[in-house]
Amino acid sequence: MSAGLRLLMGFVFLWAFLDKTFGLGYATPSGKGWTDGGSPTRGFLGAVAVGPLESAFHDWAGAPWADWLFMLGLLGIGVALTLGIGLRPAAFAGTVMMALMWIAEWPPARHLSDGTPSMSTNPFADYHLVYAVVLIALAAVGAGATWGLGRAWARLPFVGRNRWLL
């Protein structure tokens, strides 16, 4: 069960990376991908209209460092989950990413400002927080050992000396 969930979550992150890189026409329109000169952060962060970090997100929108950090995060988390290695760092990075995205959408204010929900009918437990909890749970149960390279990864001397890399 945990291996299937791990692979599914890995595909969520890898798909986001691929779509934003190549503009596959899903969340990122064709011709607007990163390889076409588009910014994977400009649209989302530039559209933040409420919340405690609104001005910071506007400053970060389209910044090369933000684009690179976001895209490397999507790729790294996706690869780690898919291969079943480095689940603790992936869970940490993914939780930070999901928390920042939750804050960027700031569901409590959006929901209450006009009386109607936009993406979620729950102002707290939207998919960003669910994904973060799933990432933490996958790392906690060592989900990389089944259908993944987690056991071989754990036997590497470098990983053995740095248990946080499990």
Rank of each mutant, 00 (worst) to 15 (best):
W102G: 00
L166W: 06
L74N: 08
L87H: 08
T21V: 12
G43F: 07
N122Y: 03
G84S: 12
G38K: 05
M71C: 08
I77A: 11
G62I: 00
L53C: 06
A140K: 07
G10Y: 04
W164S: 13
W65C: 04
A145M: 06
L53K: 04
H111T: 11
F92L: 15
W34D: 01
T146A: 15
L83I: 04
P52S: 06
D114T: 12
W34Y: 14
P123M: 11
K32H: 10
Y127A: 09
L75V: 04
F92S: 02
L156D: 13
P117D: 02
A145V: 09
G38M: 06
T35S: 13
G4L: 15
G51T: 06
T28G: 10
P107I: 03
M1H: 14
F158Q: 10
V12M: 15
R155L: 14
S113G: 04
G94W: 03
S120W: 10
H111N: 13
F92Y: 07
W65D: 05
A61L: 09
E54K: 15
L75C: 02
E54V: 11
S118N: 12
L156T: 10
S39P: 04
L69P: 04
V133W: 01
F158C: 02
G84N: 03
G33H: 01
A99Y: 08
G31M: 02
A47E: 13
T28F: 06
G144V: 08
V133M: 09
V50K: 12
G46S: 09
N122W: 09
F22I: 00
A99V: 12
R6Q: 13
A139H: 02
Y131H: 10
F158M: 12
T21N: 03
E54C: 11
T95V: 03
T95F: 07
L14Y: 10
S118A: 11
G46R: 07
A132R: 01
A137C: 11
G25V: 04
M1V: 13
T121D: 15
L135K: 00
G25W: 02
A140M: 07
A49I: 00
L74C: 01
M9P: 07
V96D: 04
A56M: 07
L135V: 08
V159R: 10
D67T: 01
A49G: 14
T28D: 09
A91N: 05
K32C: 00
L129G: 04
N122I: 01
L8A: 15
S55D: 12
A132H: 08
I136N: 05
L112E: 15
G37V: 01
L8K: 01
V96N: 06
D114P: 00
A16N: 13
D67E: 03
G62A: 06
N162E: 05
G76D: 00
L18F: 14
M9A: 15
G51K: 00
R6E: 08
A93N: 03
S2R: 11
P107V: 03
D67I: 00
P64F: 01
M9N: 08
G25I: 04
L5W: 12
P117N: 10
E105Y: 09
